[in-house]
């Protein structure tokens, strides 16, 4: 594995995605501002906006970094460089993940600050936010796997829509679990077994998705 080249490819992806990262961070902070307004309608609007920003950002990243590189035929240029498929896949996965994690982490930290500093929101609510943000990361990893493996715009957009629909069901379902309800409502952070099980499951699915992607990619013979 030539790490020097992998690093070059990651830099290149980052360079082209800077405006998208900036835009999504700004929109996300706007959403958090609405959430902090202490008004239930704006709280709902802000939360939905934040979720939409994260989903849309993930969609744009996956389609432009992975699928777009094929459809705009810039991939042929990259593959003419002395890299192997393994290096290409590694670079793509790392850059797509790292770039996604920038706004994701920013939103995680700022919602932590927001929740712990606002009396109206119980601190336990942060646990729920973490569950939802991890689910969004999971959705993104699923989308990334689909995009890297199929390299098809159509499948990628289906992945985005399906991921978004399951998110609604997920939030509804998890939010209705009694253990989660008590955790959300408690004034200090509570980590009960239901909560930790969900978090652990999410992390494991994410790791499984990433490994499957690497495995499938390593079995592809033709790069084009």
């Amino acid at each position: 594995m030539n790490y020097f080249l992998v690093q070059k490819l990651i830099y290149k992806d980052w360079y082209f995605q800077r405006p998208t990262v900036l835009g999504s961070v700004l929109l996300g902070f706007l959403a958090l501002l609405l959430v902090g307004l202490q008004n239930s309608i704006w709280f709902t609007a802000g939360s939905i906006l934040l979720l939409t920003v994260i989903i849309a950002f993930g969609g744009i990243l996956a389609t432009s970094l992975v699928v777009g590189e094929r459809s705009t035929q810039t991939r042929l240029f990259i593959l003419s460089l002395p890299i192997s498929m393994r290096e290409y896949t590694t670079a793509k996965m790392i850059s797509s993940l790292l770039i996604f994690l920038i706004p994701w982490t920013a939103f995680l930290i700022s919602s932590y600050i927001l929740i712990t500093n606002q009396a109206a929101l119980p601190d336990g609510f942060f646990a729920f936010v973490l569950v939802v943000l991890l689910e969004l990361l999971l959705n993104y990893c699923l989308l990334l796997s689909i995009s890297v493996i199929t390299e098809s715009q159509g499948w990628a957009s289906f992945g985005i829509i399906v991921g978004n629909l399951t998110l609604n069901a997920f939030i509804f379902y998890v939010g209705s679990l009694p253990d989660i309800k008590t955790a959300i409502a408690s004034s200090s952070m509570v980590w009960n077994s239901t909560l930790t099980t969900i978090l652990l499951l999410e992390v494991m699915v994410i790791l499984a998705l990433l490994s499957v992607t690497f495995y499938v990619q390593s079995r592809k013979k033709d790069l084009i």
């Binding site: 849309a56 969609g59 957009s157």
Partner: peptide, 21 residues
């Protein structure tokens, strides 16, 4: 053709806002 999923997300967000409030 290229933007349909972004619009689908926006529509989903808007409708979700209505239904959740």
């Amino acid at each position: 053709e290229r933007l349909w999923w972004v619009y689908a997300l926006l529509a989903g967000a808007g409708f979700t806002f209505f239904l959740s409030t």
